[in-house]
């Protein structure tokens, strides 16, 4: 464990707390993409299947349960919560996720770390899917133009988590002799690159004060 990975995990937890605060606490799903939330639920339910046999680290075990629980809770409230359904904009949340899920599934089968292991295929699929899971959310924000304050912090924390993981992989590559993780490194680069535009507008709007809403052109 290094500081980059620890901060990345904390940023990830923060993004969940912000989203849960908005959806469950604030009873509002305005500006939030259900499609992104559902893809994240798929990402965690597929990647963390090894909860059934990998007890290597209690820290990882607990956070895996937390991430699966939080992502399923968010999907549940967005689908069945009366006030959340009322504030969720299904028409605008229209990104064709089948064009994200299908290629990631094919890539997961073709490019993974052990072609004899179904878990490795599923694991690689979840890494690829996570890299593009934010697209429906960014697409929705782009359509709406203005990003509500809490939503902007949620998206920022979610983007920052994988950016910190990039630093973690760089650090491990430099400090651990034969550490090599091409799949997560490339996927993490793509994932973080997708946030660059948002990061820019987030910074522009927040440098005048944390409570300003983020405007996307």
């Amino acid at each position: 464990m290094n500081i980059f990975r620890f901060l990345g995990d904390m940023s990830h937890i923060l993004s969940f707390l912000l989203l849960l605060h908005k959806i469950v606490g604030g009873k509002s799903a305005a500006g939030i993409s259900l499609r992104t939330a559902e893809m994240y639920a798929i990402v965690f339910c597929t990647r963390y299947i090894d909860l059934l046999w990998n007890f290597a680290s209690l820290y990882n075990y607990l956070l895996k349960l937390l991430f699966i629980g939080a992502s399923l809770t968010i999907v549940y409230f967005m689908r069945y919560g009366p006030s959340q359904k009322a504030t969720y904009n299904a028409d605008e949340d229209a990104f064709p996720v089948q064009y994200l899920i299908a290629p990631c599934a094919v890539l997961g089968v073709l490019i993974n770390q052990d072609h004899s292991s179904p878990f490795e295929m599923v694991w690689a699929f979840s890494i690829y899917l996570e890299a593009v899971a934010i697209l429906p959310q960014l697409f929705l924000l782009q359509k709406q133009g203005e990003v509500e304050n809490l939503t902007s912090h949620y998206v920022f924390a979610l983007g920052a988590y994988r950016a910190l993981y990039l630093l973690n992989w760089m650090f491990r590559f430099m400090t651990e002799p034969d550490y090599q993780q091409r799949i997560v490194w490339l996927s993490g680069l793509v994932q973080t690159a997708l946030y660059c535009d948002f990061f820019y507008h987030y910074y522009q709007s927040k440098k005048g004060g944390l409570n300003k809403s983020v405007k996307l052109p």
């Binding site: 995990d9 290597a56 990882n60 895996k64 770390q113 090599q180």
Partner: peptide, 10 residues
Amino acid sequence: DCPGACKDEL
């Protein structure tokens, strides 16, 4: 790369 048990990250 790091198949199997050495997946020590989230």
